[in-house]
Amino acid sequence: DEETLERIAKELKEKGWTLIVNGKLITDAREALKWLLEEEERR
């Protein structure tokens, strides 16, 4: 759910983690959240 996604995005940002999505590096939590939401919609 959205709360979980926001928590994940926040944790990613705090830890300075990066996500690699389709070979693209995502360092911004907002971008990561946007991607996660798009993935949820596809299901």
Rank of each mutant, 00 (worst) to 15 (best):
A32T: 04
D28C: 15
A32E: 00
G23S: 03
L36D: 00
L25A: 04
D28K: 09
E38T: 04
L36E: 00
E14Q: 06
R30Y: 13
T27A: 09
A9Y: 14
L33I: 07
V21G: 03
K10G: 04
K10I: 07
A32R: 01
L36F: 07
L33P: 00
L37R: 11
K34Y: 06
R7C: 14
R43T: 05
W35C: 07
K10F: 08
A32K: 02
L25C: 10
L36I: 07
L37M: 07
E41C: 15
L36T: 00
L19Q: 01
R30H: 06
N22P: 05
D1L: 15
D28V: 10
D1V: 13
A32C: 14
G16T: 09
E40Y: 15
A32Q: 03
A32P: 00
K13T: 11
K13H: 10
W17S: 00
G23E: 03
W17C: 15
L12T: 02
A9T: 08
L25H: 05
R30S: 04
L5R: 03
E39S: 05
A32I: 14
E40H: 13
E31W: 13
W17F: 09
K15P: 02
L12H: 02
R43N: 08
A29N: 02
E40L: 15
E41R: 12
K34L: 10
I26K: 00
D1M: 13
I8V: 05
E39V: 10
R7H: 04
G16R: 11
L12D: 01
W35V: 02
W17R: 01
L37A: 04
E38C: 15
R43K: 07
E41T: 09
E31M: 08
E6N: 12
N22F: 14
E31K: 10
E40Q: 10
E41H: 10
A29P: 11
E6P: 03
E31V: 09
I26T: 02
R43A: 10
K10P: 01
K10V: 08
W17N: 00
K24S: 06
K10S: 09
L33H: 00
E14G: 05
T4H: 07
W17L: 04
L19H: 01
K34G: 02
A9R: 11
K13A: 13
L19N: 00
E41Y: 11
W35S: 01
E31R: 11
E14T: 11
L25W: 12
E31Y: 06
K34T: 04
K24Q: 09
K13Q: 12
N22Q: 04
L19S: 01
L25E: 08
G23Y: 10
E14H: 05
G16Q: 07
L12P: 00
W17E: 00
R7W: 13
L19D: 00
L5G: 02
E31G: 04
E31D: 05
R43P: 07
A29Q: 03
W35M: 03
L33Q: 00
E39Y: 14
E11V: 13
K15V: 03
L12A: 03
L5S: 02
K10R: 11
E11G: 05
A29V: 14
K24L: 09
I8Y: 04
V21F: 11
E11L: 15
A32L: 14
I8K: 01
R43G: 06
E38N: 06
E39H: 10
I26E: 01
E2D: 09
L37E: 01
K24D: 04
G23K: 02
V21R: 04
L5A: 03
N22K: 05
L12I: 10
E14N: 10
E31H: 04
T27S: 05
K24E: 05
R7K: 06
T27K: 06
E14V: 05
G23N: 04
E14C: 15
E41G: 11
E14S: 06
L36G: 00
E38V: 06
I8G: 01
I26N: 01
L36Y: 06
R7M: 08
E6K: 11
L12E: 01
K15G: 13
R43W: 13
L33N: 00
R7Y: 04
E2K: 12
K34N: 04
I20G: 02
E2G: 08
E14F: 07
K34I: 09
I8F: 05
A32G: 01
I20T: 04
G16E: 03
K10L: 11
I26Q: 02
E38P: 02
E39K: 08
A9K: 08
V21S: 05
V21C: 15
I20H: 02
A9N: 05
L25T: 06
E6I: 12
L36V: 03
N22M: 13
T4N: 05
E31C: 08
R42C: 14
T27F: 13
E2F: 12
E40M: 14
T18R: 09
L25K: 03
E41K: 12
E11P: 01
R30D: 04
K15W: 14
I26F: 13
E39F: 13
K13C: 15
E11M: 15
W17G: 04
N22V: 14
L33M: 06
I20K: 01
E14Y: 04
L19I: 09
E38W: 12
K34Q: 09
L19A: 02
E2Y: 13
A32W: 14
R42L: 07
V21I: 13
L12C: 15
A32Y: 13
L12V: 03
A29I: 14
T18A: 10
D28W: 15
A29S: 03
T18L: 12
W35E: 00
T4D: 07
V21D: 01
W35P: 00
T4A: 10
L36R: 01
E38R: 09
T4M: 13
T4V: 10
L5F: 07
A29K: 02
L33E: 00
L33S: 00
R7I: 05
E38Q: 09
W35G: 00
L25F: 10
L37S: 03
E3W: 15
G16N: 06
A32F: 14
I20L: 10
N22G: 08
R7P: 01
D1N: 10
G23T: 03
L19Y: 06
E11W: 15
G16S: 05
K10M: 07
